Structure formats: structure tokens, C-alpha cells
Computed example of a mutant assay.
Amino acid sequence: MFFAPDRRTCPVRAGKEWLELLQAHGHSTGPLFVSFRRAQRLSTRRLNTDSLNLLVQHYLGRKFTAHSLRASFVTIAKLKGVDDSKIMNQTKHKTTAMIRRYTRIDNVRQPNAAQENGL
């Protein structure tokens, strides 16, 4: 397990904090991602894909979906030169053809702004 340098964007820290929140509200088993009831109380209902897409669109805009997050992960990993087998281990894709399909730019080796920004 590794931690991202920036606490605000670290998925490991976010996951740990979410688990602590669930446990503080009596959720020791069941789905990891649950919906909220009125008054922002946690429910025991699994967060469905439609709700997840609405959350992504709320924070990132209408053109994005939860699927966009996965494609972005693959694209950024390719930009950083990560080997396909390591990406596949993370995303659980079965073939490199799927990795190529998820990569959102034509030539991931070309110099671009993302590389310049350290992404």
C-alpha cells in the first residue's frame, strides 16, 4: 500500500477515512459505497451506478461518467510509461487490447501538457 504525496488526492487515505466513517456509524459489514438518506445519514443500501454517475457529473461536469474515471486512470498510467501488465493488474482488464481501448489519446508518448504538469 502506498500513499499519494498530496493528502487531498490520496485514494488510500480517502479509503481509510471512509472506512472509519462507516465504522463510526455502525457499518462493519456490507457494501463499501452506500447511499445517503435524508438529512445526510448513511444508509445500508449499496450506491448504484446511476447515483455514482450523478456524483461524478456534479463534481466534474455533464460530459463525464464513472467510466471516465477508469479511462482517465489508464490514460494517465500510459502517459507515465507504466507497463500494461501493471495497469491490467490494477484495473482487472484481461487483455492489452482493452488497455489500448481505454487509453484516451492516440499517441501516449507524444509530449503534452499532462507530462509537463507531472500527471
Rank of each mutant, 00 (worst) to 15 (best):
L52R: 05
T49S: 08
R45D: 08
Q115A: 07
A71Q: 09
K94P: 02
Q57C: 10
Y102I: 02
H58F: 14
D6Q: 09
G61D: 09
N112V: 03
G61S: 08
I105H: 03
L55T: 14
Q57W: 10
E20V: 04
F73Q: 06
D106C: 00
T103Y: 04
S28H: 13
L52F: 15
P31V: 09
T65S: 14
V34W: 07
R8G: 02
Q57D: 03
S51L: 08
K63S: 13
L69P: 09
G15L: 15
L21H: 11
N89W: 12
A77E: 15
R8K: 15
F36S: 05
R7V: 10
M98C: 00
Q110C: 06
Y102H: 06
V56T: 12
I76E: 10
R101N: 01
L60F: 13
V12R: 15
D6R: 12
N117T: 02
N48M: 08
A97W: 00
F33P: 05
L79V: 06
K78G: 04
K80H: 11
T44S: 10
R104V: 11
E116Y: 07
F3P: 01
I105C: 13
H58M: 08
V34A: 05
Y59C: 10
R104N: 07
H93F: 15
H93D: 09
D83I: 04
V56K: 04
R70P: 08
V12Y: 15
R7S: 06
K94G: 03
H93C: 10
A66K: 09
G118S: 01
L19I: 12
L119Y: 00
S68E: 09
R62T: 11
R7F: 11
A77L: 06
F73E: 02
T96S: 05
A14V: 14
A14W: 15
S68N: 05
T9C: 06
T44F: 04
T103I: 03
N112I: 05
G30L: 04
H58W: 13
Q110M: 14
R45V: 14
Y102L: 15
I99W: 00
R104H: 11
L119P: 00
D50N: 08
D84A: 14
S43P: 04
R101G: 01
V82T: 14
R13H: 12
R37H: 11
G118K: 00
M88V: 02
R38F: 09
T95E: 00
V108F: 15
D50Y: 11
P31C: 05
Q110H: 13
L42C: 03
R101A: 09
L47M: 15
V82S: 02
I87P: 07
N112P: 07
G81L: 12
K78A: 14
G15S: 15
K92Y: 03
L22M: 12
K78D: 11
T96R: 03
S51C: 06
H67K: 14
F2D: 03
